[in-house]
Nucleic acid binder design. Structure first.
Length: 717
DNA sequence: GTGCCTCGAGTTCC
DNA sequence: CTCGAGGCAC
């Protein structure tokens, strides 16, 4: 059996938005045939005709075209075929402007602090006017709608903020979302919240129940589940709504002020929230918050707080962003929902660094629309009811197994224990004794002075630590090996024939499997294809960038960001290991060189050196390195670099990168980065909030440029 | 020395 | 998402 590969490739590269009504018939007919062939090949033979990515692409194209031209949908539409494997993912969309989250305030004082902080940053006197918008924070999921020349061309979820999922076909089924705009900027990304009203949620659940389908825990989950349907027809049948409250990329400004921009979005045909108000003082903001809280039950949709934004957009630009949040906005959250339940047991988990983390096992209880049965207890002080300074935080109310405890979900996510009802404590409840040996390996568990956590000293001997380190090794950000997740790691660690006890074992798996009589393929969950795929995924990562290797090692205090800084500093695995070999903690040239890396201090340096100089650990690292091809950190040719040999100083807030990142990039281009301005300084790169350094630079006649000009200079605008 | 600001590490549930 | 702690600017 064969398939028309050329037509597959052609359709794969087709943008659904380019499909005209005239072309739709032929395309849907071809898709029906191709997907039908691919399906039957997949199910009846074991040899797929087309690769998964192509299959998913065709499937998505089919859905998109059907959504655009519902009347052209075929009787034999592949969308309706039962049992057809459906892609688990949407295609990815990189946001032109990152979708950030907001920092939170819980108490009124934090709102006052926020306003004070904004004034301080902008250098605005306490009595000078400064306005904020205040609007309800809808409890739904955020969506970014991209319009070009007035046409909706793409809808994307937030994802991790940088990359979201393409849900265009689904978003088009939402009545509140216009498909075309009049008199809009050529490029306009409208951002807002998709949500479901309480009435619609209840009705939907009733329908689901009658149909024997699963019901949703709350309107937010219902909205999220509905938007992420692979079949837009299902989304269309769900009563989703949309409030617009922000924007991303723009070819022309919407207005001068936040409040006016929102009004403009309303004129363009979007729903905006009518409880949005411009406030002049923190008192007014808090009064509006209280007002909204009182109205909360009657709104008909879920909200979880109030968002305040600096109204003047020019000021927003000056304030800029921290790494993940804007400085010009904050979410004032409503108090979390609370629930009482019984503390059934306290278990200890051992993490990759040996940290002993107590976890509360709870009698299942619904909190904030979700059934919770575990809660974090942080560390031993938390159970004892004392803070890090030894002072009581719950007046000595030590938690005991059997206690009635009050649970809430911090940030509406992580279950935590807020309080204990001592009057309901069983007579036989004994104080919890935190173990001083590791429950997994029996090694001593010690608490270093000033440290909040107790750690297992077993190191690599401890199976829990070894497994957690392996999980870290294969995790995203490190080696990221497809098909080798937490579950598989647990299994392979226990495996007697083909065990994986340390990272190097992953890369010898193929050879050992080939030599083994009891091959992988004979086990549960492993067929010929999955073994082949796993081996291929492992081979794909045998060549690895230096930074990822270093991060994968899981050395304490050396995270993703520090790993990349170190990779850039040393350049190659040889240089790194050579430096580690000759380093001495606390002294010497190699130590000084290490501490000179911006972002590396004594604690991290010590941890790094100790890991590389510990015999057992180093042997394990060397066994791993022997299996790998390590890619050097990208060293650019600095000979024609515009900043080679120049001395640069950064000051103020950098918006496009962290200071450490800026420094390492500048150094990669051959520049010298200094901490203070002097006559030798060639450039001062000044962000918002620059202070004394900018003045000094002006006095000395040093050229001062902003971040964008700097990026342009180094060719990364 | 103090006070940000980030990063690292640990955690839950869908 | 949160807490603690490391690192750095002032």
């Amino acid at each position: 059996m064969s398939i028309d590969d050329a037509r597959v490739a052609e359709l794969r590269n087709l943008d659904p938005n380019d499909v005209t009504a005239d072309a739709a018939d032929a395309i849907l007919a071809d898709l029906s045939e191709l997907l039908g062939q691919a399906n039957s090949a997949y199910h009846t033979d074991d040899a797929p005709l087309i690769d998964d990515a192509s299959y998913d692409a065709l499937k998505r194209l089919n859905m998109a075209v059907e959504a655009a031209f519902p009347n052209k949908k075929r009787e034999d539409s592949p969308t309706d075929q039962v049992g057809a494997p459906v892609s688990e993912t949407f295609s990815k969309v990189t946001h032109a402007v990152r979708m950030l989250s907001l920092s939170n305030a819980f108490a009124d004082e934090e709102v006052v602090e926020f306003v004070d902080g904004v004034r301080r940053f902008l250098n605005i006197a306490a009595d000078a006017p400064l306005s904020f918008t205040a609007e309800p924070k809808i409890d739904g999921l955020s969506l970014s709608l991209r319009y070009e020349n007035g046409q909706l061309i793409q809808a994307a979820t937030r994802g991790d903020g940088a990359v979201g999922e393409n849900v265009t076909a689904n978003a088009k089924t939402i009545a509140d979302i216009p498909h075309t705009l009049n008199a809009a900027p050529d490029v306009l990304e409208v951002r807002g919240e998709v949500y479901m009203s309480e009435a619609d949620f209840l009705a939907l659940n009733k329908r689901q129940e009658e149909a024997g389908a699963k019901t949703f825990a709350n309107p937010r989950n219902a909205a999220a589940g509905s938007l992420r349907q692979l079949d837009p027809k299902i989304t269309a049948s769900r009563p989703l709504r949309f409030f617009a409250y922000a924007w991303g990329e723009l070819s022309a400004p919407l207005a001068t002020h936040q409040s006016k921009a929102i009004a403009r979005l309303q004129e363009l045909g979007f729903q905006t929230n009518d409880l949005t108000k411009v406030c002049e003082t923190p008192e007014e903001m808090i009064a509006h918050y209280t007002d909204i809280m009182l109205k909360r039950a009657d709104l008909g949709y879920d909200i979880d707080g109030v968002v305040y934004k600096v109204d003047d957009l020019a000021l927003q630009r000056r304030l800029g962003f921290r790494s993940t949040t804007p400085r010009w906005a904050i979410a004032h959250k409503f108090p979390a929902e609370l629930a009482w339940t019984r503390l059934v047991a306290i278990d200890i988990q051992v993490g990759r660094t040996g940290a002993l983390s107590p976890v509360a096992r709870l009698a299942p209880i619904t909190v904030g629309g979700v059934v919770v049965s575990n809660a974090t207890l942080h560390n031993e002080d938390y159970i004892a009811g004392v803070g890090g300074d030894g002072h009581p935080i719950r007046e000595g109310r030590d938690l005991r197994v059997g206690d009635l405890v009050q649970v809430y979900r911090a940030g509406d996510v992580i279950p935590k224990i807020k309080d204990v009802d001592l009057s309901k404590r069983p007579d036989d409840a004994a104080p919890y004794v935190f173990p001083d040996v590791c429950p997994e390996c029996g090694s001593h568990a010690i608490r270093e002075a000033g440290d909040a956590v107790r750690r297992c000293t077993g190191g690599l001997i401890c199976p829990a630590q070894a497994v957690e380190r392996l999980k870290h090794f294969v995790s995203r950000g490190a080696f990221d090996i497809d098909g080798l997740g937490a579950k598989q790691i647990e299994m392979f660690y226990q495996d007697e024939v083909l065990p994986i006890k340390e990272p190097a074992d992953i890369f010898t798996l193929q050879a050992r499997n080939a030599a083994s009589l009891a091959k992988l393929q004979n086990r549960d969950g492993f067929g010929e294809t999955s073994v082949k795929n796993l081996m291929q995924a492992i081979e794909d990562k045998r060549t690895i960038p230096l930074g990822k290797l270093l991060f994968g090692l899981g050395i304490r205090h050396v995270g993703e960001s520090a790993s990349n800084l170190l990779a850039n500093h040393y350049g190659s695995w040889q240089a790194l290991t050579a430096a580690m070999d000759k380093s001495e903690v606390g002294t010497g040239e190699a130590w000084d060189d290490l501490l000179n890396v911006d972002g590396v201090g004594a604690v991290m340096a010590t941890s790094l050196i100790e890991a590389f100089q510990n015999d057992a650990e180093r042997a394990s690292i060397d066994r791993l390195a022997a299996e790998l091809t390590v890619l050097d950190a990208e060293v650019r040719d600095t000979s024609d670099s515009p900043v080679a040999g120049k001395t640069v100083v950064f000051t103020g807030t950098l918006e496009k990168m962290t200071r450490a990142e800026a420094k390492s990039r500048a150094e990669a281009l051959g520049a010298k980065v200094s901490g203070s301005v002097s006559a030798k300084t060639d450039f001062l790169v000044a962000g918002p909030g620059a202070g004394s350094k900018a003045k000094k630079a002006a006095d000395l006649g040093v050229e001062t440029i902003d971040e964008d000009a700097w990026l342009a200079l180094i060719g990364e605008a």
